[in-house]
Amino acid sequence: MNNYETDDTFLGRWISGELSKEERIAFEKTKEFKQFTIINSEAQLLEGPTIDTEAALLKIKQQLYTKPKVIRLKQIMRMASAAIIVISLGLFLNSSKTYTTAIGETQTVTLADGSIINLNANSSVSHKRFFWDTNKGVTLNGEAYFTITKGNGFTVQTSIGIVQVLGTQFNIKDQSTFSLKCFEGEVQLTVADSRKKRYRLTKSMQVNIDENIVQESVFSEQIPDWKNGVSVFKNQSLSIVLDELMNYYPIEFESENINTNRLFSGRFTHDNLKTALQATLVPMGVQYQISNNNETIILSE
């Protein structure tokens, strides 16, 4: 029996040169020694696979650097979409709702608190879409009649200033001239200029402002004339009348040849252009000619 058969680490130690001298000499005398030697030397002539380390490193780097980029881009997209959501939500919550009337058109708007706005022709009113109850403000462009439910803090923003309201009915006309008429209750106008002048109006009081000239007076009608389908004028310049006509009829005037400063008293209807022109221009001695497309009225003396 040879050592290599009885000692289970013998051959292993022979390979690593760990055999004692005696063990080695005895082993070299066996007939298997040559076989083991050939196996050992032949095995050492073998080669493993060829491995391209640099190619593998490159491959890994590509994976390492593409993955985080994707993640980063995703994060940016996520943050961007979150920001967009926040911003658009903010804009949405802060957005306003606007009602607009075309020429010759009127519209009735009922607000969340039951207040009613009758919007006259060629006008618009807007209010915040949300949380309106905490800040009952509307912005007016043009003319409207307000019937406001009792409660605090209703305001109308106009180009002249702010109209503050308790439960009341009033009409605001904010066009070439400004006019505030109180039909019931009490309103207060704060002019948005440096003096911040305030006007308190009770029933049947009106304020007219024409190029910084303020006129306070009383009126007698129970509802605004426009709600009856007419416009009423008392000693107002023809230019204002023409502007008013353009609110109700889709027309333009060529008025270079006439004096538009002359004063007009009278009324015109909102539902018939011919009648309206006759009612306003004939008494003033103005000749007029309607162009072919019915859009331009040429005025002459």
């Binding site: 290599y4 058969e5 000692d7 289970d8 680490t9 013998f10 051959l11 292993g12 130690r13 390979i15 690593s16 760990e18 007939k31 298997e32 040559k34 076989q35 083991f36 050939i38 196996i39 050992n40 095995a43």
Partner: peptide, 25 residues
């Protein structure tokens, strides 16, 4: 290390069993 020596010994013996007949002495 001892386990390695053991495995090495087993490997060599096994290879010799398979190849011995191809090696003429």
């Amino acid at each position: 290390v001892k386990a390695i020596e053991r495995r090495m010994s087993i490997a060599l013996k096994a290879i010799k069993e398979l190849l011995g007949k191809h090696i003429k002495i």
